[in-house]
Design a protein around this nucleic acid. Structure first.
Lengths: 354, 354
DNA sequence: TTGTATGCGTTATCAT
DNA sequence: ATGATAACGCATACAA
C-alpha cells in the first residue's frame, strides 16, 4: 500500500514518519516512545507504536540522530601503525567494548606518518565522532593539542601527549620493567642491554628506557646496563649497528657474568631475532633474552622467547570504557590506568650459557 | 562578533550558513561553489565565498551531506577476525586506498562469531555506509544475502558468498597452489599433506583444498597427497590429532621419498610449528614445509619457513578501489580479481633430509 | 547567475 | 499525554 512518500532519496528503510503514519500518531510521539520510554506514554498508544515499529522493522537513522542531537555514537580510533601487533590487539579490545556499548569505530591509520595526525583528527571531527582513542606518536609539530579535538574527549593509549588533558591507559611500564630485570638478574644475567626503537618523543619508549635505567641502578653496582636505539630497516646501517651492539654485549659476558638483551617491543624483538640469525647465535646460549609484547610465535623461536606480555585486550577495553564513561557525562580530572603485564618465561632467559 | 546563531548544538565548527553570511550570499550559492565548482559561478561572488570559506576554515559536515545526498563517503569493513594477520594486512591496504579517495572506514570485527554477520551489516547500513568490504565467513544461516545489503555494493575479499552478486578479490589460489606443489615436487617431496582449517563453507579453504588435490593429481601417480583439517586449540584433541597426522606423514617418507606439509594459512602454520616443537622435529629435516601467508617471523623459525606470500596490500587496495569505482557509478557484472602470490623459498623446503 | 523554499530523518520546544 | 513545528547542516528544484 503506502509507498514511501520520500521518493527521491534513501530507498528501503522506514523512517520515523512511516511509523507515525502506520500507528496513526505524530512523529513526536514515536520519537518519545523510542527515547523517553520511561515517562509520558499512554498504554494503548505505546502498544500501537510498538507494533508499527516492529511491523516496519524501523530503526532510527544514526546520521539523522547525530545531526539533531549533536552526538553520533561514533568513536574515532587513530592508530600510528596497524601493522604493529600491539596496536591491532588494542584495537581488538577497544572495538569489542565499543560494540557492547553500541558505539561504532571509525578507523584512521597513520601508517607511521606522524605528520598526518591532525589530518586524521580533522577528518574524524568532521564526521562528528563523539570522542577519540589515540594511539599515535604524540610528538612534534603535528601533535594534537586539546583544541584540535574541538572539545571532544580523548583517551590516550600507550603514548602520552605532552600537556594534553586526557585519560591515559597503558602497561605499567615501571613495574613491568622491574619484573623483567629482576627475573634476568635472578637468572644470573648481569650484563644487560635494552634495545628500543628510537625514543624521540614517544613517551612509552622513554618511560621504558628510564625504567630500565632505574632498575639497573637499583640492582646495585653488580649489574651493568646499557641502552641501544635500533633503527628501521630503511636505515642502511641498521643491521651493522645492531649486530655490533650485540657483539659488544656478548664481549661483556664471561667470567661468570651472563649477558642478556631486553627488547622494547615486538618490532625490536623481530629485529633482534633476525640479527641473532645473522650472527648464528641462539637465544639462551650466547645471549639471554626477554622482549616486551608477547606474540604467537614467541614460543617457536629457538627454545622460546621469554616475553613481558601486555594485557592488550584489557588495555583496549579499558580505553574504550574510559572514553565511553566520559561520553556518558563523567567529569573529573584525567585518569591514568596502568595495567600490569605478565612475564612469560621461556627458554631464552633460562637456558644455560654456552 | 557574530556569535553563532545555533547556540544549542554543535559548538565550534562553522556551518554553511555562517559562510553565506560572511560572504553576503545565500547558502545555496555557497553550496554550489563547493559542489559544482565548474559551472555557474560569477567571479567576484566566487572570490567572496572562497575568502569566507578560508577565513572561517569551513568544511562541510559529512553527516549533513549524507542525510541530504543519501551517500556518506563511508565504507563499512567487516572482518571475520582482526586477530588474523591476513585480515589486518588487507585492512591496511584497504584503509589506505579509502583515505586516498576521501572515504573513511567503519570497522566491525566479528571476532570469528559468524552469527553476528547480519548484525554487523545492519549496524553499518544504519550508518548509511555507501558500500561494504566483506571478509567474513559467508556461510550458514547468517550469511549475508543481497538484500541485507539494502542495495549497497559490496566487494568480497578472500571468501565468496554463495549466490551473492558482488565483486571478488582474492589470491589466485589455483595458481599459487600449483606453484607451491611444483616447488615441492621439484625438491623431491612426493609425500604431501595439506593442512587446512576446517573447510566447512569457507570458499578460500575449499578452493585451496581442491587446488591441492588437482595439483597432486596433475603430478601423476608419483606423488601422494592427503588433506588434514586442523582444529582450534579449543578442541581438546586438536594437538593429538595434528601430531598424529604429522607422524603418519613422516612414516610415508623413506626410500628416497621425502614428505612435506603445506599449511593453508598462517594460523595453521602456527599450529604446525607448535606441533613440530612438541615432536622435537625441525622443518627441513624430518619434514619439508611451505605455508600460505608470509609473516615477519617466517624467516626466524629454524632455518626459515618457506611461504606463499599473498599480496595483501594489493588485495586490500584492489578491494577498496573496486568498491569505490562502483560508488562512482561503474555498472557491470561482478568482477573477479585474482592476484598472484609470491613463493618465498627458505630453509624449510630445501634443506637436505635428515 | 543567484536566491527561496523544501526535504533528508531526528530531536526538542512549544502549545494543546 | 499528544501534536505541530522548528531546528540540525546541507543539497537541490524551482523561481527570479
Amino acid at each position: 500500500m503506502s509507498t514511501r512518500k520520500s521518493v527521491g532519496r534513501a530507498p528501503g528503510r522506514a523512517t520515523i514518519g512511516d511509523v507515525a503514519e502506520a500507528a496513526g500518531v505524530s512523529k513526536a510521539t514515536v520519537s518519545r516512545f523510542l527515547n523517553h520510554r520511561e515517562r509520558l506514554l499512554s498504554p494503548d498508544i505505546a502498544a500501537r507504536v510498538e507494533a508499527a515499529v516492529a511491523k516496519l522493522q524501523y530503526s532510527p537513522s544514526p546520521m539523522a540522530q547525530a545531526l539533531s542531537r549533536g552526538r553520533s555514537r561514533l568513536i574515532g580510533l587513530v592508530v600510528a601503525d596497524v601493522s604493529n601487533p600491539f596496536s591491532v590487539a588494542v584495537l581488538r579490545g577497544a572495538e569489542k567494548a565499543c560494540q557492547e556499548a553500541g558505539y561504532l569505530l571509525m578507523l584512521f591509520n597513520l601508517g607511521n606518518e606522524g605528520s598526518r595526525e591532525r589530518e586524521a583528527i580533522d577528518a574524524l571531527v568532521r564526521y562528528q565522532v563523539d570522542g577519540f582513542i589515540l594511539n599515535t606518536l604524540g610528538r612534534g609539530a603535528s601533535a594534537v593539542d586539546a583544541d584540535t579535538l574541538h572539545g571532544k574527549p580523548a583517551v590516550l593509549v600507550d603514548r602520552r601527549h605532552p600537556g594534553m588533558r586526557a585519560d591515559f591507559v597503558s602497561l605499567d611500564n615501571g613495574e613491568a620493567m622491574q619484573t623483567v630485570c629482576a627475573h634476568l638478574v635472578a637468572g644470573g644475567f648481569t650484563e644487560l642491554l635494552y634495545i628500543s626503537e628510537p625514543s624521540k618523543g614517544v613517551s612509552s619508549r622513554r618511560e621504558r628506557i628510564a625504567a630500565f635505567g632505574d632498575c639497573a641502578k637499583a640492582q646495585g653496582a653488580n649489574v651493568a646496563a646499557q641502552v641501544f636505539e635500533s633503527h628501521d630497516d630503511a636505515d642502511p646501517q641498521a643491521h651493522e649497528e645492531l649486530d655490533g651492539a650485540l657483539k659488544a654485549l656478548k664481549r661483556r659476558a664471561g667470567r661468570g657474568r651472563r649477558a642478556a638483551v631486553v627488547a622494547g617491543n615486538s618490532v625490536v624483538t623481530l629485529r633482534v631475532a633476525a640479527a641473532m640469525t645473522r650472527l648464528g647465535w641462539q637465544f639462551g646460549q650466547e645471549l639471554g633474552f626477554v622482549g616486551f609484547d608477547d606474540t604467537e610465535w614467541a614460543s617457536l623461536i629457538g627454545s622460546g622467547l621469554s616475553t613481558m606480555a601486555q594485557p592488550t585486550d584489557a588495555i583496549g577495553h579499558a580505553a574504550a570504557t574510559c572514553l565511553i564513561e566520559r561520553l556518558r557525562g563523567f567529569e573529573g580530572p584525567p585518569r591514568q590506568l596502568l595495567l600490569p603485564g605478565q612475564l612469560l618465561v621461556r627458554g631464552s632467559s633460562v637456558a644455560a650459557k654456552g
